[in-house]
Amino acid sequence: MVEQQSEDLNLDAIFKALGHPTRREILEQLADGPESVSELAEPHDVSLAAVSKHLRVLEDADLLDVEEDGRVRRCHLDAAPLSDVFGWLTRYRVLWEDRFDALADHLENDDR
């Protein structure tokens, strides 16, 4: 039960992190490799402080690691937690596919 609650909290944090387009764009940037906070902020029309807040949400969801080197903070993508999301989505995809298959069977039998 405790493990399930922990997994649910992690999923909540990940979905919260993925729920904002700027954070999704930042994750896409990091998929190409590590970048500094200022490099991540450059293509976005928001302040450096706003980008830092987005990074904190991503960090809280364990989707990125921040490495400090003097005054420079380098961010690295950690995509491993996305496997939890994939597993969750897969369970529901299978459920809905089964339901749609049952509906199709029902409609086919109804037409006969």
Rank of each mutant, 00 (worst) to 15 (best):
F15R: 07
D110Y: 12
E25C: 07
S47F: 00
Y92I: 08
L103M: 12
A79E: 15
V57E: 15
A49Y: 00
A41N: 04
V94L: 15
E108R: 05
S83E: 15
R91F: 13
R71S: 12
S83F: 07
P81C: 06
R93L: 11
H20S: 10
H54F: 11
P21R: 10
H20V: 00
D32L: 14
R74M: 11
L64T: 07
A80H: 02
A61I: 05
T90I: 04
V37S: 04
R99P: 04
H44D: 09
A80D: 11
H54W: 01
E67V: 06
E28W: 07
R73M: 08
R71P: 08
A102V: 08
P21S: 11
L77I: 06
N109A: 09
L89K: 02
D32A: 12
V37C: 05
V46D: 01
A17R: 11
D62L: 06
L58T: 08
I26R: 00
L95A: 15
A50L: 13
D45I: 01
F100Q: 13
E3R: 02
A79Q: 13
S47Y: 01
S36N: 01
E59H: 10
A31D: 03
D84W: 11
D45G: 07
E39P: 01
D12R: 14
N109H: 11
V72H: 00
D8W: 06
L55M: 09
Y92K: 07
N109E: 13
M1Q: 14
V94D: 15
E108V: 08
L27A: 01
F86W: 04
Q5I: 10
V72I: 15
E7D: 13
D69K: 11
D62H: 02
D32I: 05
A79Y: 07
L11N: 01
L55W: 01
D105N: 02
R24N: 11
L18K: 05
S6L: 04
L11H: 02
A49D: 10
V46C: 09
P34H: 11
D65A: 08
L107V: 12
V37K: 03
A17K: 06
D78N: 14
A13M: 10
V51T: 15
L9A: 08
S47I: 02
L9Q: 14
